[in-house]
Nucleic acid binder design. Structure first.
Lengths: 340, 340
DNA sequence: CTGTTAGCGCATTCAG
DNA sequence: CTGAATGCGCTAACAG
């Protein structure tokens, strides 16, 4: 392994001078700089990050905590974060919490151990608070993406849950729906809570009925099971059956449509479905599901940017909050107009 | 920050004893071990990886080099690799090369700098050889996944390109096709080359015609442009037109079907399409494309396993090679039987 | 079974 | 503008 001492010897300078050249710190005469740089190239020197971190307390490593990298929403976030990180000279560590606070906690310890410079986190749920506070204890900055947590003062990149929810519901209302159900994730997750509240608020605004039998929680993982939930709603008395379902995540939306179709409930004629978040349309065939497309790549890209600014002390003291809008695509799954 | 010295002082032992307890090395009396462990818990000690790496030359970091994490094939690999890594006490660093050897090279330097313990690599192409040899120079083991490179002696987890290609083609042949085209990735990539060779071999085996106008290369990224290629084939004289297309990757297959449909070529009646690799069927609707589904999660999981065994000197000297079979799903895109 | 010594590679003092 | 000394936190090698 080539060290700065090898360079120093070869270039007839001290190790310190080599260090200064590498880090562009202090003043170096043009001549020695060139000499040193030549030797560095000649010997193919690559700095030892461990040694550097030990003194400088910086690793140039960012970490991304998501609940499941196979969810396309998070995959795009990873890509965005990684592009920005690479561009700024950072590397990206990947962590999957599986929506599990304990697994998340284990990761947090590993990250602290590694000395990550900062964390981009989509926390599992509100109980993740203690994990994030542990980061603070070690002075490691973090940026919350997608899911915020009450009372945690930090930069955030969030979805505009209220507006997007309202737009999806207003669309249903315009289609003549008055009995709208919601299948949501756990209310310990901020996005679920905000979408829940926006749901209630919008129904109130339009003076639509609210019925506890129309309000359900599943979870956000791929295998979110909605069958019992929907079965229950289909068994309600005719007059009490919802005519539309608002699914608060991509997988919930997909699984809802899947279940309805399997059980010969016509979408959108019998029940309309709208969905928060989208899945990539690989096939190029006409997509079916009315959905709000989130700018997921930007969650990662902007999140990494905020984080790096924070790490490098280029950010204002007060936390910043970026709220990204979604693009609502109206499609077949809600294309049936009801008579009032 | 809590160090082993803090623990040592509090527990009335030397730092070395603390180190031994932490690493489970050497013999420690039950009594002192318990004492030390109690203090560790009490003070919430988290080891400093940088310091540890500096002496031990181990980081407990694995790296994954893929060409694009937003490709579901690689996403699943990432998930598999990360699950195994976590399970074995490693963390995973993520790198996207964009099929670009220079970008890959930049990453390799960063990884060497960080002192990664090993690399799981799907190299950009044959020119990645020098990047991987650089790893060897620094004694960093790597496992090739999906794409091997000639003359590189290392563990590998590969797809059974020959068998899978043959099975896809035999299916077409059974359907009565005799004029089969191939749209491939660059031949500087091993998977493309193997699928190319298997294509030729199978056509020869069944004494089918081979026509240079039926053999094309695109690339493996999502926006692989196949329009000119297919347009060219459609403009061939009637007798020379292929009746089926073998697409050697998921995106090529998708883009091929998309282009054909847009141009009112009926699939499978006018032209059948089969495809190597699949995309996740989120929607649960009947998938259209006949494709060979690779066990992508296992590429990552098994790759990480081989890598960790290698790192921890639990592997035999001679390189191991795992060849994973694919599952061929026969579907609508090739469901039309031709009269001979 | 436990402690002492030394050094990993680098950057932060402080001198010159 | 450059260099020497020192220590980051930890562990290998040796002593006891």
């Amino acid at each position: 392994m080539v060290t700065i001492y090898d360079i120093a010897k070869e270039a007839n300078v001290s190790a310190m001078t080599v260090s200064r050249v590498i880090n562009n710190s202090g003043n170096i005469s043009q001549k020695t700089r060139e000499k040193v740089e030549a030797v560095i190239k000649e010997l193919g020197y690559i700095p030892n990050s461990s040694a550097r971190s030990l003194t400088s307390k910086k690793t140039k490593i960012l970490s991304l905590m998501v609940t499941d990298i196979t969810n396309p929403f998070f995959t795009n976030i990873a890509r965005g974060a990684e592009d920005k990180a690479m561009q700024m000279g950072y590397q990206l560590m990947l962590c999957n919490s599986d929506e599990n606070v304990d697994k998340e906690s284990k990761y947090i310890d590993m990250l602290i151990s590694t000395g990550t410079d900062g964390v981009l986190a989509a926390p599992a749920n509100d109980s993740s608070k203690k994990n994030l506070q542990k980061l603070s204890k070690y002075q490691i900055p973090y940026v919350l993406i997608d899911r915020y947590i009450e009372e945690l003062s930090c930069d955030q990149v969030l979805s505009d849950n209220e507006t997007t929810t309202r737009r999806l519901l207003e669309h249903l209302i315009k289609q003549g729906h008055r009995q709208i159900a919601i299948i949501n994730g756990p209310l310990e997750i901020a996005t679920a809570r905000e979408r829940h509240n926006a749901y209630l608020k919008t129904l109130n605004l339009y003076e639509l009925p609210i019925n506890e039998h129309w309000i359900h929680q599943s979870h956000f993982l791929r295998d979110s099971d909605v069958s019992d939930t929907i079965k229950g709603m289909l068994e309600l008395p005719e007059s009490e059956q919802p005519t539309a379902i608002f699914a608060t995540s991509n997988f919930i939306g997909i699984n809802t449509v899947k279940y309805l179709k399997e059980n010969h409930v016509k979408v959108p004629e019998d029940i309309a479905v709208v969905c928060y978040d989208s899945i990539p349309n690989y096939l190029g065939t006409e997509p079916f599901l009315t959905s709000a497309e989130q700018p997921s790549y930007n969650f990662g890209y902007l999140g990494a940017q905020l984080l790096i600014e924070r790490i490098e002390n280029k950010a204002p003291e007060t936390p910043r909050k970026i709220v990204l809008p979604s693009e609502v695509h109206f499609r077949e799954s809600s294309a049936f107009k009801r008579k009032k």
